[in-house]
Computed example of a mutant assay.
Amino acid sequence: MKDREILDKIAKGDESALKYLYKKYYRMMTKLVISNNGSEDEAKDIYQDALIVFWQKVIGGQLILTSRISTYLYSICLNLWRKELDRKNRLSHEEKDEAQYLDNDREEREKIIHECINELGDTCKRILTYYYFEKMSMQEIAEKLEFANTDTAKTKKYKCKKRLDQLVKQKYSASDFLD
């Protein structure tokens, strides 16, 4: 089929011309995406989107073809793929920024918690540090601090945690944790 014949068929709504274009240029268009860091699925999506854009321009009478159809489709695929790469790049940067923000936020919270823990008595300071930061079990804490049993360590930890919560709420408001 010649380009003029394809355009005429599309203008009349004949989808066989679209199927013909899809098969004829499939390898060329998908190779463009795959050779530029794209997957097979992404390549198929881009090519299908390009064909839809082409179809809509022909049907809408907006297409002034100054090159071969293959060249025109190639440029549409290239532009669509560039937009997709830009979008991916932006998302990647946003994820990195968010991860950095979360790390900074976590560090700030830990700093506040450590500051408040240091204001508690020595026993509470040790229990909470062992449990939350050194990830020791209640059994290990009970042995290390020479408590009678694990239940004693649990009760102490509960009371210390409650005092820590009160201290944090006393010294800081919710807005201190939010930007």
Rank of each mutant, 00 (worst) to 15 (best):
C124I: 02
D122I: 03
L128W: 09
L102T: 04
M136R: 15
F133G: 00
M136L: 15
L120M: 12
D103N: 13
D105S: 11
M136A: 10
A142I: 03
K135Y: 15
T123E: 15
L102K: 11
E119N: 06
F133E: 07
L102R: 10
A142W: 10
Y132C: 01
Y132R: 13
I127H: 14
R126W: 02
N104A: 05
I112C: 09
T123F: 01
R109P: 02
T129N: 15
I117M: 15
E119P: 01
T129P: 00
H114V: 01
T129Y: 12
Q139R: 14
I113L: 11
M136W: 14
D122C: 01
I117L: 11
I127R: 12
K135T: 11
L128G: 09
L120Y: 05
R109L: 14
M138G: 08
L120G: 07
R109H: 10
G121T: 02
Y131F: 14
N118I: 00
K135H: 15
E140P: 02
I112L: 15
K111A: 13
Y132W: 14
K144T: 12
E108Y: 15
K135V: 04
M136V: 00
N104R: 11
S137M: 02
Y131K: 13
F133Q: 06
K125A: 06
H114C: 06
M136N: 06
M138N: 10
M138E: 10
E140T: 11
K135D: 07
R126K: 15
Y130R: 02
Y131N: 04
A142H: 07
C116P: 07
Y130T: 00
Y130K: 03
R126F: 01
Y132M: 07
Q100T: 14
R109W: 06
I141H: 02
Y131I: 03
K144P: 00
I112A: 00
F133A: 03
